[in-house]
């Protein structure tokens, strides 16, 4: 199974006093597109953050292997350098740090992206145009006073700039107007094509998936992965909701 990019095996995790994820198994192959669905509070964002290495959550069992390396005990910075990217559902404001300074620093950290300042400016300028981001955002402080939609676009800018091997997009589509949604969808499409990166999309909304070929769909209920299937599972959920998965989990628990 060495061609798998991400292998999660028997993973349980939670906060200090609350187990959230139970015995998760999930694999994502290089360049594949996976969708993770589930009702509110199921644990989808938690899984994204645990894969990223957010220290708020503790892994109590199981392993996470990325690109052939066991990353279960690595810090988020190391995982990021290894090629994992998580777009935040709510990106954090960092006063005092102009966007340009931030972008330059996170790029120069990576041997594969290290480049001259001039080439860097060109790249950033191109991607900003592609995402319809005004150039004057680059000299503003990171996410400070940006609207919800603008913050999401800045997350996309970082995704396209960093070219990770795996991108976990946590409701990147929520709160976007129609125009922004189509720009962001095109950005995701560009990431797939230009970087041949793998995607784990967390979403409640199927519109963002229209431009993508989905390889696998996973359903999470109460911290358990209860089903997976082909792209058509998304339409099934759209039509019938999560009830049957919740019932099945309840039955299993009783048995």
């Amino acid at each position: 199974m060495s061609d798998q990019l991400l292998i999660i095996a028997g993973l349980s995790a939670g906060t200090e006093d609350k187990p959230i994820l139970h015995n998760i198994d999930l694999t994502v192959g290089a360049g594949e597109t996976h969708v993770l669905m589930g009702p509110n509070g199921a644990g989808k964002s938690t899984l994204g953050h645990v894969i990223m290495g957010d220290p708020i959550y503790q892994v109590t069992d199981g392993t996470i292997t990325f690109d052939g390396q066991d990353v279960t005990d690595l810090g988020a910075d190391k995982r990021s350098l290894a090629g994992i990217f998580l777009s935040y559902q709510a990106p954090v404001e960092v006063p005092g740090v102009p966007l340009y300074s931030f972008l330059r620093t996170i790029c120069q950290m990576r041997p594969e992206l290290k480049t001259t300042a001039r080439k860097f400016r060109e790249r950033v300028g191109k991607i900003a145009d592609q995402l319809d981001i005004d150039q004057n955002f680059l000299t503003r402080e990171l996410n400070v006073g940006f609207s919800g939609g603008e913050k999401k676009k800045i997350e996309m800018l970082q995704l396209l700039l960093l070219r990770p091997k795996l991108a976990i997009l946590d409701e990147t589509d929520s709160g976007l107007d129609v125009d922004a949604l189509s720009i962001v969808s095109r950005g995701i499409e560009a990431y797939r094509k230009e970087c041949d990166g793998a995607l784990l999309m967390i979403t409640h909304n199927t519109r963002i998936l229209e431009r993508l070929t989905v390889d696998r769909t996973h359903v999470m209920v109460h911290g358990n992965l209860v089903a997976d299937g082909p792209a058509s599972l998304i339409d099934d959920i759209d039509a019938h909701g999560f009830a049957r998965f919740e019932d099945a989990l309840a039955e299993k628990a009783e048995a």
């Binding site: 810090g75 910075d77 990021s80 005092g96 340009y100 620093t105």
Partner: peptide, 27 residues
């Protein structure tokens, strides 16, 4: 929150601190 966010983009705590210094001059 800021530190976790910056770590998820590849910066260690030391590097994040250095970024703040550079950022002050950039600004």
């Amino acid at each position: 929150e800021q530190l976790d966010f910056m770590r998820s983009r590849g910066l260690s705590e030391d590097e994040a601190e250095r970024l703040f210094v550079r950022a002050m001059f950039d600004d």
